[in-house]
Design a protein around this nucleic acid. Structure first.
Lengths: 241, 241
DNA sequence: CTTTGAGTGTCGAGTCCTCGACAGTCTGCC
DNA sequence: GGCAGACTGTCGAGGACTCGACACTCAAAG
């Protein structure tokens, strides 16, 4: 069990949910829901990243939050029927478990532990988005680039991310040429290697030094609100060994 | 009753809350809570604005959301004991009703209508913050300035806002000199008049034209999620007469 | 093996905003 | 009345990012 929320459920509560959890392949670029869609399914990533994108009237889309194995997409539908606020897009290949919103709602009604988890997840997500408001206003593209790469790295397997500069430019809400310049600069510093749609993380310490505080703040918020993950595959270099 | 949430409560539910609602003067600049504080009181503005500020490690503070008579500060404490995520600062003189978090929690337990309202408010606030993530990344200072002035105007009495350019620069996360330039430009267009800590709204239509879409998006989101206000003092010019 | 298209590198003019500095002006307080 | 402090106006150099353009390279499909 690799999803932090599901792992935190008491065995009995999980057992009742378990038969309804459907394995779901996360395919890069797939849209799970659009703003205004009724949320019929909730996705618990096991590995991989789903981006919640805010859409502007001119068609621009920018990431408001990233959700990986520490959370779930559409979770507020546990509380009551709900329409999506953001577009949810799969960022890269991965695996998730899918659950019908109605089943989830019934489980939520029955399980205090699940109610607590849904609440904690909502608070964490809110804190995350709040941080991004400030981040987008105050921090440079390079800082935000590093924050994003690190957050993504935490949520996937391996040290290679499949993403183009064009895509990253969208996510960050900047021009592609700016991303190119930043990527080049970080490559020169030995932090990453960029090769045609793939980013290799070479040196996390360099990335952490170049990232804004937002990376650590959000990560620690989730650690505070949600039960610890079984095993931390990657750790902040500043943390205890 | 001028608070939209309280006004939406069924009479019986409100009656049970009513004896515990304490009138509270909103004094400009007063801090209601800091991040990490336990939320002991919830504030329902009747008139006036409270800013939720995200704090950075270097001391910078930038607004993540504005709360007025359409909402409440600290409302999630209704669900369970909670620590504040943002700093809550009174933006300008006004009035509110204050409620103990424990009383609110008991009422929340007893009243399905209140639970729905808390949930709807949370969703609206989340949507608001999400919009601001995109806004801060994609929109010019002038657009954001106008959005902010309009949002504020909706939530106070009269057409004059008490705020300095320095304060506004903080809120928006930009330099004061930039605010000065933008204010000057809008004054030249006849949208506002700026005089030493006071902004007169002269022509809302001009402001709405110069504001980014975020103003209308957030406003309509609240209208969709919360029961209509009794009387709309100020309306979007694009709305029906 | 060749073609096509996606992805990247680069250039340069232009704009928006920063950042520090300083002068001027209004308000409230003594 | 006059002083102190808060607030606003202005200047200018510089940096970060935009925006359009184009050439190049790699990978996959035929």
């Amino acid at each position: 069990m690799q999803n932090r929320l599901l792992a935190a459920l008491p065995p009995g509560d999980f057992a009742r949910l378990s038969p309804h959890l459907v394995p779901f392949e996360l395919e890069r670029g797939r849209t799970l829901h659009e703003p205004g869609d009724r949320i019929d399914h909730v996705y618990f990533p096991l590995v991989g990243v789903i981006s919640l994108m805010a859409l502007m009237e001119n068609g621009a889309a920018i990431e408001s939050a990233m959700i990986g194995p520490e959370g779930a997409v559409g979770l507020p539908a546990a509380i009551r029927q709900r329409t999506a606020i953001s577009r949810a897009v799969v960022q890269g290949k991965g695996r998730a478990l899918r659950l019908s919103a109605t089943v989830l709602h019934e489980a939520w009604t029955a399980s205090p532990a699940l109610r607590d988890l849904v609440d904690a997840h909502g608070e964490g997500l809110y804190a995350n988005v709040t941080q991004s408001v400030a981040c987008n206003a105050l921090h440079s593209v390079e800082e935000r680039f590093c924050r994003w790469i690190l957050s993504c790295h935490d949520r996937v397997e391996g040290d290679t991310l499949a993403l183009t500069q064009e895509y990253l430019a969208d996510i960050l809400g900047v021009q592609r040429t700016t991303v190119t310049a930043v990527a080049r600069s970080l490559q020169d510093k030995g932090a990453i290697r960029y090769r045609r749609g793939l980013v290799d993380i070479i040196d996390r310490a360099v990335l952490e030094a170049a990232a804004c505080e937002c990376y650590g703040v959000v990560r620690r918020t989730y650690d505070r609100l949600l039960p610890a993950a079984q095993r931390q595959v990657k750790s902040e270099t500043s943390a205890e060994p």
